[in-house]
Design a protein around this nucleic acid. Structure first.
Lengths: 186, 186
DNA sequence: ATTATCTATAGATCTATAGATAATGC
DNA sequence: ATTATCTATAGATCTATAGATAATGC
C-alpha cells in the first residue's frame, strides 16, 4: 500500500495535473474527488492525506495549469522574436483551443467567479501573467498603451475561444476564430 | 392548493425567469430544482408537473433570457439610430455587466459547452441573434465584412465581461472594460 | 372529473472522515 | 515508528417519482 516519499510526491503531482485537465473539461462542480483520484490511479480516501479539501486542489490545479500556459506562451514568443504577437495569437486561436481541456482561462471563464477566494486569485494571477506576456509582445507604444492593447487583444482571444467552444456549429466556430485571428494580427 | 390555469401559467413563467437568473448566477450545476422552486415561491415536487426535467428547464430558461437580451439590444439600437454600435458596446461594457446575473452568454460561457444538446442550441441561437444585431449596427461595408466585424466585436465584448467578472481586482476589471470600450467605439 | 401543487421518499452521488493495512525510512 | 494509501461509511444534497390534497372548470 504505502509507497516511497518520492513516489508519493509524484502521485501528488499527477493528481494536480489530472485535476487540472478534468476541471477544465467538466468544471469545478462537474467532477468529484473520487473520479479525479480514480483518473490518477488512486483511491478516493487517499485524497485527504495530500490535500486539505477539494477547493484547495482546485486552486492548486488551476495555478499549475496557468503557470504551464504562461511557460508555453513565453517559449512561443521567444521562438518568434520578430513576430511574437502573431505567434501567440495564432497558436491561441487555432482550432485546438476548442478542445474540452484547452486554456484554463477560457475553459473556466464562467466557473471562476463562483469559486472561493484562492481559486479566483489563481485565475486572476494567470490572467495578469498572460496579459503581461502579450503586452511585452506588442510591437510598439508607451507601456500604458501596450497594456491597453494587450487587454483588448486578450479579451478578444478569450471571447473568441469561449464562443467557439460553446457553439455546436463548427462553421460558426471557425468563422469566429478566423475573423479574430485576422483582426489581431493584421 | 390548486390554482387557476392562468395562475399556473404565470407560476410557470416565474419559474423560468427565476431559473434564468439563478443559472446565470450559480451555473447549471450550482443550483438545484428544489432551490429554484423555492425562489419562485413553490415547492420542489410541483416542478415535474410543469417541466420534463432540469435540463429542459435549463434550455427554456436560457432561451428566454437570450430572447430578452436580444429584445433589449434591438430597443437600444433603435433608440440610437445614428450610433447604434456605440450604444450597444457601451451598454454591454458598463460595470453593470459584472453583476452575477448579467448577460447569459458571458455568465454561462464555460458552462454551455458541457451541457446537453438543447441547452447548447439555445446558447448558439442566442449568439447568432446578438451577432446579427451587431452586424446590422456596423457603420459600413459588405454584408460579409460586417458579419466579420460583428464576430470580432462580439468576441471582444464577451471576453471583456468574462474577464471583468472573473477577477476579484476591481481596478483590473475596469481597465479591461474601458480599454475594450475605447477600442470598439473609436 | 381534472389538475396544480403539496408532502414524503427512493436512489444516486458527493465531500469528508475514521480506522485498517502494509511498506518505507529512521 | 511513521505514513501513504486503502476500505468503508457518515451525513448532506440532488434529481425524479409516488401518492395525497384541494381548488378549478366542465
Amino acid at each position: 500500500m504505502r509507497v516511497s516519499r518520492e513516489q508519493a510526491a509524484e502521485n501528488r503531482k499527477r493528481v494536480v495535473k489530472v485535476a487540472g485537465k478534468l476541471f477544465r473539461e467538466k468544471g469545478f462542480d462537474g467532477i468529484g474527488v473520487a473520479d479525479i483520484m480514480k483518473a490518477a490511479g488512486l483511491t478516493h480516501g487517499g485524497f485527504y492525506g495530500q490535500f486539505a479539501s477539494k477547493d484547495a486542489l482546485a486552486a492548486e490545479a488551476l495555478s499549475a495549469a496557468l503557470n504551464a500556459s504562461a511557460e508555453r506562451w513565453r517559449a512561443r514568443a521567444a521562438a518568434h522574436p520578430d513576430t511574437p504577437l502573431a505567434a501567440l495569437v495564432e497558436a491561441y486561436l487555432s482550432g485546438d483551443h476548442r478542445a474540452p481541456h484547452s486554456c484554463a482561462i477560457a475553459a473556466l471563464a464562467s466557473d471562476a467567479p463562483r469559486q472561493a477566494g484562492p481559486v479566483r486569485e489563481a485565475y486572476d494571477t494567470g490572467v495578469q501573467e498572460l496579459v503581461a506576456i502579450l503586452a511585452a509582445a506588442m510591437p510598439g507604444g508607451e507601456p500604458a498603451e501596450r497594456q491597453r492593447q494587450a487587454l483588448v487583444t486578450f479579451a478578444t482571444m478569450v471571447g473568441a475561444v469561449t464562443l467557439a467552444r460553446a457553439t455546436p456549429d463548427e462553421n460558426f466556430a471557425s468563422a469566429v476564430l478566423e475573423a479574430c485571428r485576422v483582426k489581431l494580427t493584421r
